[in-house]
Computed example of a mutant assay.
Amino acid sequence: MTAASSSSSPRHFTVSDFDFALPPELIAQHPAAERSASRLLDGRAVVPVDRVFRELPELLQAGDLLVFNNTKVIKARLYGAKASGGAVEALVERVLPGTREVWAHMRASKAPKPGAVVRFADGAFEAEVLGRCGPDNGLFHLRLSGDPFALLEQHGHVPLPPYIEHGDSADDVRRYQTVFAKEPGAVAAPTAALHFDEALLARLAARGVGQAHVTLHVGAGTFQPVRVESLAEHKMHSEWFEVSQATVDAIAACKAAGGKVVAVGTTTLRALESAARGGQLAAGARETDIFITPGFEFRVVDRLVTNFHLPKSTLMMLVSAFAGYEHIMALYRHAIEQRYRFFSYGDAMLLERSRPAG
Rank of each mutant, 00 (worst) to 15 (best):
Ala3Phe: 01
Ala4Cys: 00
Ala4Asp: 00
Ser8Leu: 09
Ser9Pro: 00
Val15Leu: 01
Asp17Met: 10
Phe18Thr: 01
Asp19Phe: 08
Pro23Asp: 08
Pro24Ala: 12
Glu25Arg: 01
Glu25Asn: 00
Arg39Pro: 15
Val52Thr: 14
Glu55Lys: 15
Leu59Met: 13
Leu60Tyr: 15
Gln61Thr: 06
Tyr79Trp: 13
Gly85Tyr: 03
Ala90Pro: 08
Val92Asn: 05
Arg100Phe: 10
Arg100Lys: 07
Ala104Met: 07
Lys110Phe: 07
Ala111Asp: 13
Arg119Asp: 06
Arg132Phe: 04
Asn137Cys: 02
Gly138Arg: 07
Phe140Tyr: 11
His141Ser: 07
Leu142Met: 08
Asp147Val: 04
Pro148Phe: 06
Ala150Asn: 03
His157Asp: 11
Leu160Trp: 09
His166Asn: 07
Asp171Met: 13
Asp171Glu: 14
Asp171Leu: 14
Thr178Cys: 09
Gly185Leu: 10
Val187Asp: 08
Val187Arg: 05
Leu194Thr: 06
Leu201Trp: 02
Arg203Ser: 11
Leu204Ser: 04
Arg207Trp: 05
Gly210Cys: 08
His213Cys: 03
Gly221Thr: 06
Gln224Tyr: 11
Glu229Pro: 07
Glu229Leu: 02
Leu231Lys: 08
Glu233Ala: 08
Lys235Ser: 01
Glu239Ile: 04
Phe241Cys: 06
Ala250Gln: 11
Ala253Pro: 06
Ala256Cys: 07
Val264Phe: 13
Thr266Lys: 10
Arg270Gln: 12
Ala271Trp: 01
Glu273Lys: 00
Arg277Tyr: 00
Arg277Ile: 13
Gly284Lys: 02
Thr288Tyr: 01
Asp289Trp: 00
Phe291Leu: 12
Phe298Cys: 01
Arg299His: 08
Val301Leu: 07
Val301Ser: 10
Asp302Arg: 02
Thr306Val: 11
Asn307Gly: 09
Asn307Val: 05
Ser313Leu: 03
Leu315Thr: 06
Met317Ala: 11
Leu318Ser: 08
Phe322Asn: 13
His327Phe: 11
Ile328Ala: 09
His334Leu: 04
Ala335Tyr: 09
Tyr340Asn: 07
Arg341Phe: 09
Tyr345Trp: 04
Ser354Gln: 12
Ser354Asp: 00
